Computed example of a mutant assay.
Amino acid sequence: MPLLMKFRRYWAIFVVAVLCLPTIGLFAPDLPAPLRSVAAPEARWWTNAAARLDPYINNVFGFRGAVLAAHAQYGRWIGSGESRVLKGEDGALFLKEDQALEQSLGQVLRPDAIAAAADVAERLDKMMQARGGRFLVMSPPNSQTVNFELLPAYARALKHAPTEYDLFVGDLKARGVPVLDLRPLMAQAKTDGPVYRRIDTHWNERGALLAFNAAMDALGRPDLKAAPVDALGDAVVRDEGDLVRMAGLTKPEKPDIGYKIKGPMASQPGLTPLTGVIAPVSPRDPFVPQVFETGHPGPRIMVIGDSFTQGYWKGLLASRSSAYAWIHHRRCRFDFADVERFKPDLLIYAPTERGIPCLPSKDGPKATGGR
């Protein structure tokens, strides 16, 4: 009588194959995965394997990327914020999406996507040169970049160069495209007070103002800067932030510091909407374009940015221009015809660090001109 009946042999082969999957996964192609928080087993792990070896195994199992991606999708489905937020030192929170952490640490490099972003910036520069205007590229750094010291220790140990920010700035300088590296500015400004949120993905009002003033200097219009004493009020304690909501917390471990705004940074009266200039989007879109005449003299200013400039710069743009436009960069998929129709004197291309790469999108191909 055979050891295994014929129909059971197939089941045996199937079971053995399943048991081999974790080993095969160590060598087979896998999906991108979050950074490993444990790089090697602890010394003398065999004396207490449950405590000293298990953390390492949990970081190196086969098909780790696929398993964690599935876990993240499940977490989003049930509304859990655990897979979206990284807890750092001293109560700081960081966004885990868009590979922002890996990007800031130099753990992910997408040179083709960065070169494509530089192509977009170069095209905008040539458009502005043709009309006698001024152009600038500036990228608000990730909070992981600015508040690097608040990342978990294992993440800080993985930092190396170059980063995608380095590649982008270097490429633009090589092409002769005007670019402002905001990282040194933010690092210096931190010595006098916070410039980025601790429990939110964005900079605070002070960081936003310093970046705006630096952009005006770089554009050759220092007369458009707003003095901090005129634009910022008292510091205020805040315990709300987008990362707090994503993490499902009712209250952060440590509150945040922001600033009241006033004068040129506050909402400005007398704005008149300009219609028929910017391609419309759905009113449910979180990034509805802003196009206004202000009723006072000044240059026409346009910003192609994201949430770092959408609200933080609204008052500054209105108080410093005769007309201003703000549109989202759409990961390089904005409509170049919007620029041609608005005819700005000053144009700023300002994707956040994690929004720099021109990555494939289910929304369709990149926009080119009015097509």
Rank of each mutant, 00 (worst) to 15 (best):
F334Y: 14
M246T: 07
G364K: 02
K6E: 14
G298N: 04
A70G: 15
S37K: 11
G132E: 05
D54K: 12
A318W: 01
G133F: 12
R76M: 12
Y56I: 07
A12K: 06
C20H: 11
M128K: 02
A33K: 04
T145F: 02
A215L: 12
G207V: 01
R206G: 00
L150C: 09
A235D: 02
E149W: 10
A325F: 14
L151C: 04
L4M: 12
L53Y: 14
N59W: 02
L185W: 03
L210T: 01
G79T: 10
S321K: 12
P41S: 09
A113P: 02
E82K: 07
W203D: 01
A17D: 10
H71S: 15
T272E: 08
D171V: 11
K96A: 15
T352S: 13
E102M: 11
L31Q: 11
R221V: 09
A50K: 13
C332P: 02
A49V: 14
P264N: 05
P55M: 05
T272L: 12
D125W: 13
L185I: 13
Y259S: 04
D345S: 03
P280L: 10
I257K: 01
Q103R: 14
K254R: 13
Y10I: 15
P264H: 06
Y349W: 14
P32H: 06
L31Y: 12
Q73T: 14
F342T: 00
A33W: 11
A350P: 06
P228Y: 02
I261K: 05
G276H: 09
A49H: 11
I261A: 04
D256Y: 00
E82D: 14
F14A: 15
Y259I: 10
L109E: 04
G132W: 09
G193T: 07
E82Q: 10
P273A: 12
H329K: 12
